[in-house]
Simulated scan of single mutants.
Amino acid sequence: MSRPVLSTHVLDTTSGSPAVGLFVDLYKQRDESWTLWHSTTTSGDGRVQFPFSQDSMAPGTYKLKFNVEDYFKKNDKATLYPFVEIVFKVSEGAHYHIPLLLSPYGYTTYRGS
């Protein structure tokens, strides 16, 4: 099986463990608006491998929306951020791994491998 075009991994840095069951929405930018393209939740190890091939995920601008507040509420924690949005550009033929290191009062992201 070929490598997915897009994947993410969310780690809850307050517990030092994967963020399990966090809702993630993928949007594609069309003109000046965003179109919801896919909704999912993180797996038991905090990961999502989106089911898109190079043919189905065209180059363009995309956004991952992580529903942080719902995740922290399930874990009896307050958070400053109701959601985290990460906007990125996709080029033809590339793989994108977008990790999110998450705490109730901060987050970090980068392009993974």
Rank of each mutant, 00 (worst) to 15 (best):
A19F: 05
A19D: 05
G21C: 05
L22P: 00
F23R: 13
D25M: 11
L26D: 01
L26W: 01
L26T: 02
Y27M: 11
Y27K: 09
Q29P: 05
R30E: 15
D31M: 07
D31A: 10
D31T: 05
S33R: 14
T35K: 12
T35H: 12
L36F: 06
W37H: 10
W37L: 15
W37K: 12
S39P: 05
T40G: 06
T40W: 07
T41K: 09
T42E: 03
T42K: 00
S43E: 04
G44H: 03
G46V: 09
F50L: 14
F52I: 06
S53L: 11
Q54L: 11
Q54P: 03
Q54F: 09
S56G: 05
S56K: 07
M57D: 00
A58I: 13
A58Q: 15
P59M: 02
Y62Q: 01
Y62F: 07
K63S: 07
L64I: 02
K65S: 06
K65A: 03
K65E: 02
K65R: 15
V68R: 04
V68P: 02
Y71E: 08
D76P: 02
D76G: 08
D76F: 15
D76Y: 13
K77L: 15
K77V: 13
K77T: 14
A78Y: 09
A78H: 12
T79L: 08
L80I: 08
Y81H: 11
P82S: 04
E85D: 14
